[in-house]
């Protein structure tokens, strides 16, 4: 990429111009993050009356705590499932929308609506539909011979939060895929058709490889979303239960810090989360830089 270099008359001016952005970054991101790191080295009583510096004791305890290790594990399962489900469904919908000639605008607009629904509302809605006593989905599942109960069965609970969390994300992924599909020149598909590839083969040998930068970008974004932005969805559906089977890392931070009032441990957990998101972001930038140019 070529960028134009701007030359400033005064050496101070450019710093002055980025100052507002830097101030926001500092106050809302760096400072709280620093606070979390600092707090993760402390041991405090719930009322903040007694504080002692304990170095890495909080972290040491964390990584031998079977509940935390379990949470780490289900977070991985949850994030991967959400990414696969929401990317997969979005791709199918985008391919359908791309093929539509009439009404594709309407279709696109309707598909984007779920993104505007607040996560908590979405969570409540899915909770309601899957409610073991009054939910329509659990009623239908029962007719098929499956006894759905997400308040007792950990697998059912996980499936419920995965569906509820994916549902919202499909709209977002859909828009990216649709833009990606429309950026593929029609002549490529036509050339492949003349070259003897049927629609399915064209999709897998031409369209999908050309969408791979989009897919990878979305995979990372969706994993980050599943790990960090799904608090409301889980809080509204399962509240981490049954017996912690849907308490993913971010939910555990809340449980331990705000309910259990173990402030030091909670801070250490958020630092771990921070490290994970930084790693994911670095992977994304590295990979995109290397592979986006096919």
């Amino acid at each position: 990429m070529q960028t134009k270099r701007t030359v400033f008359g005064s050496p101070v001016l450019p710093y002055l111009l980025v100052l507002p952005q830097l101030a926001i970054t500092f106050v809302f991101f760096l400072w709280p993050a620093g606070q979390a790191v600092w707090q993760s080295f402390l041991r405090e009583d719930p009322f903040g009356l007694k504080t002692s510096f304990v170095w890495f004791a909080n972290y040491q305890k964390l990584f031998v705590d079977p509940q935390y290790l379990y949470s780490l594990q289900i977070t991985a399962v949850f994030a991967l499932s959400v990414a696969v489900l929401s990317i997969g469904s979005a791709l199918v919908l985008a391919v359908a929308a791309d093929r539509m000639i009439r009404l594709s605008q309407t279709y696109t607009t309707l598909l984007v609506w779920p993104y505007a629904v607040a996560p908590a509302v979405a969570g409540v809605m899915w909770w309601f539909m899957f409610n073991p006593t009054i939910g329509i989905m659990s009623y239908m599942l029962e007719m098929l011979g499956y006894d759905w109960n997400h308040s007792l069965n950990p697998t059912d609970a996980m499936i419920l939060v995965v569906i509820a969390a994916s549902w919202k994300q499909i709209s977002y992924n859909f828009l990216f895929f649709l833009a990606g599909l429309q950026a593929i020149p029609a002549s490529l598909n036509e050339a492949a058709a003349i070259d003897g590839a049927g629609p399915v083969k064209r999709f897998f040998t031409i369209v999908l490889p050309l969408l791979s930068p989009t897919t990878f970008f979305l995979a990372v974004v969706n994993m980050v979303y599943a790990m960090f932005d799904t608090f409301a969805v889980i809080h509204a559906t399962t509240q981490g239960g049954p017996s912690g089977s849907t308490a993913i890392l971010v939910y555990k931070v809340f449980q331990d810090g705000f309910i259990g009032l173990k402030l030091g441990s909670s801070a250490a957990q958020s630092v771990v989360l921070m490290v994970i998101v930084i790693t994911l972001t670095v992977i994304q930038f590295r990979w995109v830089e290397r592979h986006v140019e096919y």
């Binding site: 020149p185 002549s187 490529l188 036509e190 050339a191 003349i194 050309l210």
Partner: peptide, 14 residues
């Protein structure tokens, strides 16, 4: 059983 050469070549970029 035909082959076509397109204006934008339509080579498979990947």
């Amino acid at each position: 059983d035909i082959a076509m050469v397109f204006q934008n070549y339509a080579l498979y970029p990947h």
